[in-house]
Simulated scan of single mutants.
Amino acid sequence: MNTSINEPQAVSNPVTRNAIFIVATIAQDSEHLETVRAWCEDVEGLVRSVGTRFPASGLSCVCGFGSDAWDRLFGQPRPMQLHPFKAIGSGERIAVSTPGDLLLHIRADEMDMCFELATQLISKLGDAVTVIDEVHGFRYFDQRAIIGFVDGTENPTGREAEDYTVIGDEDQTFAGGSYVLVQKYLHDMNAWNALTVEQQEKVIGRSKFANIELDEDVKPTNSHSALTTVEENGRELKIIRDNMPFGRPGMGEFGTYFVGYARTPSIIETMLENMFVGRPAGNYDRLLDFSRAVTGTLFFVPSVTLLESLASCKPVETESVQASPV
C-alpha cells in the first residue's frame, strides 16, 4: 500500500445544500470483488470529471468500507479500530446494527450534481454491489434538522477538525484516513410538535430560535446536548457531524441522516451509549422518545492516496495443508 501522501478524503468539506447517502453490500465472488477493487482507482477521477461541469457546486464524495468488506477485498493489514458496529441499548431504545459493505457520501449544493455523480459511481460498479439504502438529503432552512433545531453547531473547524477526524501516527499505515458511523433516524413529528417550544428546548438543551446552549442550571442532564458531550481529562472530544434532513411528506416520513466522522469510532460509540443506555444508566436521551434509529453501520474512510492504491490490493490466499495419511 502506498501511503507516502496521506491526503484525507473530503471529510471536513463545508456543508452543502444537498447530499446523497448510499449504503451497499458487495457480492462475494472473486470476479465482483475485483470489480470493486479496480473501481477504487476511478473514484477521484469521476468526482473531478463530474465536478468540472459546475465547479461552484462544491461536489465531493467520501467513500468508506465496512469491516467484513475490508477483509474480503483487501485483507491484511487492516485499520486498527475497524470493526462491525454492535447494537447499543435495549427495549424500545436501540441503536441498531445493520449491514453495509460500502458507503458513498456525496455532497453538492445542487442535487443534479449529486445525482449525476451517484449515477456514474454506481454504474461503474454494476452488479458487483446491491444498494440496500439510499437517502437524498437536503439543507433545511438555516442548517436546521426537521425538528427545527440547528444541527452541527459544535463541529470543529480548520486544523482542529483534522485533529479530531484524521488518523495520525497511532496507525501509520492508515494515516490520513477516518472512521464514519451512519444512522438513519425517523421522527414522530406529531408527538414532537405537540410539545411547547420550551419543552422542545429542554429535550435538545439549546434555544430553538437563537441556537444558544441552555445554562447548566437549566439544561436537563438527559438533554441531547448534555449526553452527546464526551470529555476526557477535562477536554471535550469532538466529531464532525454532517447530518442531513430527509423525508417524504406524502408517506409521513420525516428523518435525519446522521453522519459522524472521527479519528476513532470509540468517541461516537460512547456518545451513543450515553444516548441509548444513559449517563448514568437509565438517564437516556429524551430525544429518543421522538426519534428512532432504523440503520447503523461503521465504515473506514481511507486517504485519497490509499483509496487509489487499493485497486492493486487483495487478500493473500493461503493454501490449506492436508495431513499425510498415517
Rank of each mutant, 00 (worst) to 15 (best):
residue 246 F to Q: 00
residue 217 D to K: 13
residue 25 T to H: 03
residue 321 V to R: 10
residue 2 N to G: 11
residue 303 S to Y: 02
residue 151 D to Q: 07
residue 186 L to H: 05
residue 164 Y to W: 15
residue 121 L to W: 10
residue 284 Y to A: 06
residue 267 I to P: 06
residue 18 N to D: 08
residue 85 F to T: 01
residue 88 I to E: 04
residue 219 K to M: 14
residue 133 D to E: 15
residue 311 A to I: 04
residue 145 A to T: 15
residue 304 V to M: 12
residue 196 T to S: 15
residue 168 G to W: 01
residue 232 E to C: 09
residue 290 F to G: 06
residue 307 L to E: 07
residue 162 E to W: 08
residue 202 K to V: 07
residue 123 S to P: 02
residue 273 E to N: 11
residue 202 K to Q: 15
residue 315 P to H: 03
residue 184 K to A: 02
residue 279 R to P: 03
residue 25 T to I: 08
residue 187 H to F: 14
residue 269 E to S: 08
residue 273 E to I: 07
residue 215 D to K: 14
residue 91 G to V: 12
residue 321 V to C: 05
residue 19 A to Y: 03
residue 260 G to N: 08
residue 189 M to T: 06
residue 11 V to G: 10
residue 262 A to H: 01
residue 288 L to E: 10
residue 192 W to E: 02
residue 129 V to D: 11
residue 221 T to N: 13
residue 138 F to L: 09
residue 139 R to C: 09
residue 18 N to Q: 15
residue 164 Y to P: 07
residue 183 Q to W: 03
residue 186 L to I: 10
residue 306 L to V: 08
residue 272 L to T: 05
residue 157 T to D: 10
residue 28 Q to P: 02
residue 114 C to A: 05
residue 101 D to I: 04
residue 65 F to L: 12
residue 152 G to Y: 00
residue 142 D to R: 13
residue 187 H to T: 00
residue 164 Y to K: 09
residue 251 M to V: 01
residue 247 G to W: 00
residue 108 A to F: 12
residue 273 E to G: 02
residue 211 N to K: 04
residue 62 V to A: 06
residue 115 F to V: 06
residue 324 S to F: 13
residue 112 D to E: 11
residue 79 P to W: 01
residue 320 S to Q: 13
residue 4 S to E: 13
residue 42 D to R: 15
residue 205 G to A: 09
residue 36 V to Y: 01
residue 208 K to D: 04
residue 157 T to F: 02
residue 176 G to L: 08
residue 245 P to T: 00
residue 322 Q to L: 14
residue 276 F to P: 01
residue 154 E to K: 13
residue 31 E to I: 11
residue 288 L to A: 09
residue 176 G to S: 13
residue 236 E to A: 12
residue 69 A to F: 04
residue 241 R to L: 02
residue 59 L to I: 01
residue 65 F to G: 10
residue 91 G to F: 03
residue 229 T to L: 08
residue 7 E to D: 13
residue 54 F to I: 06
residue 301 V to D: 07
residue 14 P to G: 09
residue 251 M to L: 15
residue 63 C to G: 00
residue 222 N to H: 09
residue 98 T to K: 07
residue 175 A to G: 10
residue 211 N to T: 05
residue 82 L to K: 07
residue 286 R to G: 05
residue 68 D to K: 10
residue 231 E to Q: 12
residue 57 S to E: 04
residue 92 E to T: 12
residue 316 V to T: 15
residue 294 V to C: 02
residue 313 C to N: 11
residue 8 P to D: 07
residue 113 M to S: 13
residue 3 T to N: 15
residue 207 S to L: 13
residue 297 T to Y: 00
residue 9 Q to Y: 11
residue 240 I to R: 13
residue 121 L to D: 06
residue 98 T to L: 06
residue 53 R to P: 02
residue 7 E to M: 14
residue 96 V to Q: 07
residue 247 G to M: 02
residue 242 D to R: 15
residue 71 D to R: 11
residue 72 R to M: 08
residue 282 G to V: 10
residue 80 M to V: 11
residue 88 I to L: 06
residue 252 G to W: 00
residue 189 M to P: 04
residue 277 V to W: 07
residue 269 E to N: 08
